[in-house]
Design a protein around this nucleic acid. Structure first.
Lengths: 242, 242
DNA sequence: GAGTGGTCTAGACCACTTC
DNA sequence: AAGTGGTCTAGACCACTCT
């Protein structure tokens, strides 16, 4: 995976950009890069395309390829890219210690809506998993997730106290790489206020969506009510399609 | 632009998917598609890659290419993709009539922070444009934007009452295709409550970020305080890099 | 006109899944 | 072993920018 030609070139170019090797903010043209790396122009293009999509560089037909000055000044922004899929993963920030408190865990019949979203039959069952996520013992997210039992028949309360996505990839070799998400905000309700320690004037952010396995199977419907101070969704949007 | 081979194929495949032509949720293999469309396999791959990135299909090495069932059931979701760049554009929803009320419009020296974000010199000036955006006369967004005068020397109050991005593309032939955005939420302040008609328990969503021209020039720093009922940011996230 | 990125082709070979 | 997607190459030709 990591030894693909175009990935090696990406890594190297990022490194060189970081080291200010191209001080006029302009990269060498594709044909030169192709020659100096000893690879085809297509592979160079592929590397550059991915980097352009990540916002690291801009390509301008007829004149060249340029470094996004923001990337130099604020590289940390670019680490949020593609953004938080797993939640445990995205909040390791600031050296704080993440924690999970299990609030509710049961197996229930899938509702109509869950049947739709997870592509289940009327007699299928799902785990309902409600957890409180903490950062240095401070509660920040109330997370309610629904996972079909037929996808994870071996799910146990002890697994649920950790990262389900990590369990999936380490133990079952399945990986979660795609999701639909909606992000919105609401006044906090009483439960939010109790569990997250909010006043009645403080809101929650809501991230709800569906997570998919890499083969397209919908894995989980998730609803996260986030302490508003911890809701920050960073994204780089490109309207090109490729 | 619209007559590229891989785009034609994308359009046609989407059409055929929509018409349920592939009722087993499986697309023909790439080599067959290549032959039946009379194009190279690379062009097929390109079309399929873009569609996979959009979440319309899933590719599974060794077994085939499959339609995301959510796309069939809920195609509307996929129209939000890449998501709101221009703001006027993204709120035409529901047949409501968008409006703009100009609150403040002046030219000021660029602050340190603006100099950083917009790559300006210490003696550069920016327009400060504060507008209230309406939907059917109901206020929904307080938008404060900063644009360097040297990029748009001809900006006038009358332009500012409409879509600046449309003006740019129609009159000056420049297009805005990329942005960094952060999305968060906060309790509303007094001005939010007055302008957006909120109670003190109702929050605002905040979308702040930088818009870029397609050549990489930063065009605008924008801060939008959104009535919480209208904040809904939909996104399809893929952790693959391409 | 020279330089640079964009699109497309044709084909070799690899990696994974399924039978 | 056959089928299917993934990576990579080499090269042709087009479209835009610069001067």
């Amino acid at each position: 995976m990591a030894d693909l030609v175009y990935r090696k070139i990406m890594r190297d170019l990022k490194e060189r950009i970081f080291n200010q090797e191209f001080n006029d903010k302009k990269l060498p043209d594709e044909r030169s890069l192709s020659e100096s790396y000893g690879v085809s122009r297509s592979s160079i293009k592929r590397a550059l395309n991915v980097m352009a999509q990540q916002g690291i560089i801009f390509k301008k037909r007829g004149s060249g390829t340029f470094i996004n000055p923001l990337y130099l000044k604020n590289q940390s922004l670019f680490n949020y890219e593609g953004t938080n899929l797993g939640v445990t993963d995205s909040f390791h920030l600031d050296g704080k210690r993440p924690g999970i408190k299990l609030i509710d865990y049961q197996v229930i019949p899938a509702s109509k809506e869950l049947q739709q979203d997870l592509f289940l039959e009327p007699d299928d069952f799902v785990y309902k998993i409600k957890r409180l996520r903490l950062l240095d013992d401070e509660p920040i997210i109330i997370e309610t997730g629904y996972i079909p039992i037929k996808i994870m028949p071996g799910l146990t309360p002890s697994v649920v106290k950790g990262s389900i996505f990590n369990y999936l990839s380490e133990i079952e070799g399945k990986s979660v790489t795609k999701s639909f998400m909606s992000i919105l905000a609401e006044p906090s309700n009483q439960q939010d206020q109790e569990l997250l320690g909010l006043s009645d004037k403080e809101p929650v952010g809501i991230m709800e969506g569906i997570f998919f396995l890499d083969d397209g199977t919908p894995l989980e419907v998730s609803n996260m009510r986030v302490h508003y101070k911890y809701l920050k969704y960073n994204t780089f949007v490109s309207l090109d399609e490729e």
